[in-house]
Amino acid sequence: MSDQIKNITFNVPDGNNFLWSEWEDASVVYDKRSGHTQVLNEFAREILALFEDGPKKFDDICFELEEIMGNDLDDESLALIFQTINGFDSMGLIEPV
């Protein structure tokens, strides 16, 4: 999986498949379709929330995060976003539209 991930529009399929347990330092999500449980930090939780709002590409996510944070993203953040999207894809939390 390389940079081609950046050109794929992903969404959270079918809706309503996630169950959440929210704790002070992390969110735990159970996906009814896969039966898998994942722990997300606040950053990852925010990115998944953006996908839950509607289909998006890598650039859309970056744009929205810049809006939320009020400044430009540095290279480290961009790499982290890329990694997170890649991770969500392999966990099946998001799927290509």
């Binding site: 379709r33 896969s34 039966g35 894809d89 099946g92 799927e95 290509p96």
Partner: peptide, 19 residues
Amino acid sequence: QSSTRKIKWEINRVRRAMQ
């Protein structure tokens, strides 16, 4: 139920692999 869920999910993952 667990077996059915796992098989369905594997079908989903195969589809993703063949995207």
